[in-house]
Amino acid sequence: MKFSAGWSKKLLKASLLFGLLCSPLTASNTGPITAKERASSMIQEGLNHLLLEQNKQAEEMFIKAKSIDPYSEQAYNFLGLIYLQEGLFEKAEDMLKRAVAIEPMYPEALRNLGKLYLRQDRFDEATTYLRRTLALDVNQPYTWYLLGMAQYFSGKITESITSYENAFSMEPNLPVEAHYNLGVAYHETSRYLEAVRSYEEVLKQEPAHINALNNLGLVYSILGEKDRAIDLFNQVLKIDNGNIKARINLGNVFLSTRDLVEAEKIYRSAISLDQSDISPRLNLGVVYYEKGDFANARAEWDNLLKENPDNVRVLSVMGSAYLERREYDLAIEVFKRMTELMPENGSIANTLGYLLADQNKELPFAKGLVEKAIELDRPNRATYLDS
């Protein structure tokens, strides 16, 4: 699954319009024109240029405005917005922080700082500034949307879902990528029916949205709707015949239904398109294994390990195959390597410990492994205590 960050230009324009609506610039019609009023007039002219995407002219007007009124938080904010749009992140940060220094409760500048840090993958800082923005006004759907993204990339997926749901409760017509991102968050937290609804909303608006088609196929596969999953992956391949993910996903459905002939055909087609992706090669070995052809299965896996001896995915599949075939010495060798590569994985430590004990080998070492597994993975203590 891939979370989408294709939001920046749309939201920059949206936030600009939001700022215009929320922060109108006014000037007195009587008496001599003050420096602040002249600066405000230049800011308004700069905004007109911004709306026409005439960034250079807009920048010139905002620079003039802040030279006339050095305490114009709006001039600094809109300069920061231009620099953010142009990818000049250091200059954007400098301007936006100056705006906030002048007016600490300026929501547009706070939100733009959050947006900047999101663009830079500085997710904790983005979260901080977006929360500060919402503390001033909770009714900001685009800010909730941005906060949801920052939380997702920080690994706080449940909080991300809440933020997205808040955004949609205020503005149902958010960009299609917001529906997609919420679907991914539901998907990753096993809220599959809600993920289906989100992905289907994406496809209602963009029927050729490849990532949504692929992910919806994955969800239906998990839910046991294999035919619907196959149809969705085939839809992807009609749009993009070279889509490796769709081919792998399609092969995996055939493998799970033990249609080994189709699975092999699909995996081979994926390999012919991209030999660097290990998934179809690894799974082709599984197809051989399921056919009872362990020699060819092992040959596929050995070739992958020659390219990368530390590939845990391949080692895991091989170790499980050796266990199933009761080739315990080979299984022990593989799981020992895995514990070296992943010393903090309780499940692997327990498997090796149990295997050694079952074979009456290296019993003190086996006991230490199981005890370590108990400490590393407390939710599964009961299973490991049995070991």
Score class of each variant (00 low, 15 high):
S40E: 09
V370F: 07
M338W: 02
S269E: 12
A295T: 13
S28F: 00
V286D: 01
R131K: 15
A185F: 06
L352G: 11
P107Q: 10
D274L: 03
T383A: 14
K372P: 02
Q54W: 08
A263D: 09
G292D: 00
F254N: 05
V202S: 05
F254W: 04
L146V: 14
K91S: 07
E159I: 12
Y152M: 07
F123I: 12
D259R: 10
E37A: 00
E108W: 03
I222V: 05
A263I: 04
Y106L: 07
L116P: 02
N249W: 09
A185H: 08
L118G: 09
D240R: 12
S160N: 00
S272G: 01
P175A: 01
Q151H: 13
N303Y: 15
E171A: 14
E45P: 00
S272N: 01
A101Y: 12
Q275G: 11
A135P: 10
V314G: 14
I222H: 00
P379L: 05
Y117F: 13
R38D: 04
E93I: 05
I210G: 00
L363H: 07
N350M: 09
I266H: 07
T351M: 15
S279F: 07
N211K: 14
Y322T: 03
E177K: 04
E171I: 08
A135C: 10
A65R: 00
S269R: 08
G19D: 07
S316F: 03
V219G: 05
A14G: 14
Y328Q: 05
Q85D: 15
S269H: 06
A366F: 02
L110H: 02
L363A: 10
A229V: 06
G242L: 01
Y192K: 13
G251C: 08
S387L: 13
P175M: 01
L305T: 06
H49C: 08
I248C: 15
L116A: 04
I222K: 05
S72M: 01
V312F: 02
Y199L: 00
N303K: 15
L323K: 05
A14N: 15
S67F: 07
V138Q: 12
S67Q: 05
G346Y: 08
D377M: 09
I332V: 13
N214H: 00
A299Y: 11
F153Y: 15
S41L: 14
E375Y: 05
G217R: 03
L355F: 04
A178R: 12
L223S: 07
R132T: 12
N296R: 14
A5V: 12
Q85R: 15
R325N: 10
N215P: 12
L284Q: 06
A349R: 06
I68Y: 02
N29W: 08
